[in-house]
Amino acid sequence: MTTFKLIINGKTLKGEITIEAVDAAEKEKIFKQYANDNGIDGEWTYDDATKTFTVTE
């Protein structure tokens, strides 16, 4: 398992979430669903070196 981080830079929601997953593709799906469930629609980036997804509205 690898630890992945999501950084949220939303208009109404900001924060960080850290979760373990098998791979980045699995985690991306979970993070995007979390963002969608919380009304966050923005630009996504991924840094493989730090295993960090960022979504910015």
Score class of each variant (00 low, 15 high):
T56C: 11
A24M: 11
I30T: 03
G15D: 09
L6K: 00
E26R: 04
T54V: 05
A35L: 15
G42R: 04
D23A: 06
A35C: 14
L13N: 08
I30G: 02
I8N: 00
T2D: 05
F53V: 04
L13D: 04
I40T: 03
K5A: 03
T2P: 05
F31D: 00
K32W: 12
K14Q: 11
L13K: 05
D23T: 10
E20D: 08
T45K: 05
K27D: 02
T2V: 13
I40H: 02
V22S: 11
L13C: 15
I8G: 00
A35Q: 03
N38L: 15
Y46S: 01
K32A: 09
F4W: 05
D23C: 12
T18Y: 14
A25L: 10
A24C: 15
N36W: 14
K27G: 15
A21M: 14
A25I: 10
F31W: 07
G10I: 14
K29I: 10
N38G: 04
E20Q: 11
E26L: 09
V22P: 12
N9H: 05
D41E: 12
I17P: 00
T54K: 03
A24D: 14
T52W: 02
Y46A: 01
E57Q: 10
T3D: 03
K27P: 15
V22R: 10
E16T: 11
E20T: 11
K5W: 14
G15W: 15
D48L: 05
K51D: 06
K51M: 08
G10H: 04
A21Y: 09
T52I: 05
L6Y: 10
F53R: 00
F31Q: 01
F31I: 11
E43M: 10
T18N: 05
E43I: 13
A49R: 07
D47P: 00
L6Q: 00
T2N: 05
T54S: 05
E57M: 14
N9T: 07
F31P: 01
G15V: 15
T45Y: 08
A49I: 09
F31C: 10
I19T: 02
V55Q: 04
E16W: 14
E43C: 13
A25Y: 08
I30A: 05
Y46W: 05
T3Q: 07
K32Y: 09
E20K: 11
T12S: 07
T45M: 06
K51W: 12
L13V: 12
K51A: 05
T50G: 02
A24N: 14
D37G: 04
D41H: 12
E28K: 04
G10K: 04
I19C: 15
A35M: 15
N36R: 14
A25Q: 09
D23Y: 11
E28T: 05
K32P: 01
T18D: 03
W44D: 00
T45R: 04
K51S: 05
Q33N: 05
A35K: 03
T2Y: 15
A25W: 12
I30D: 03
D47N: 06
T52Q: 02
L6A: 02
T12N: 10
V55S: 02
A24K: 09
D48Q: 06
A21S: 08
N38H: 13
D48C: 06
I19Y: 05
A24T: 12
K11F: 13
A35W: 07
D41T: 13
F31G: 00
G10T: 15
N38T: 06
I17S: 01
G39A: 08
N36D: 10
T12K: 07
E26M: 09
Y34P: 00
E16M: 11
T45S: 12
K32D: 03
Y46D: 00
T45C: 08
L6W: 10
K11R: 12
D41P: 04
N36S: 13
L6H: 00
D47F: 03
I8K: 00
M1N: 08
V22M: 09
Y46Q: 00
K14G: 05
A24S: 12
N9F: 13
I30R: 02
I7Y: 06
A21N: 11
K29A: 11
K11C: 15
T18E: 06
E16Q: 07
T18K: 06
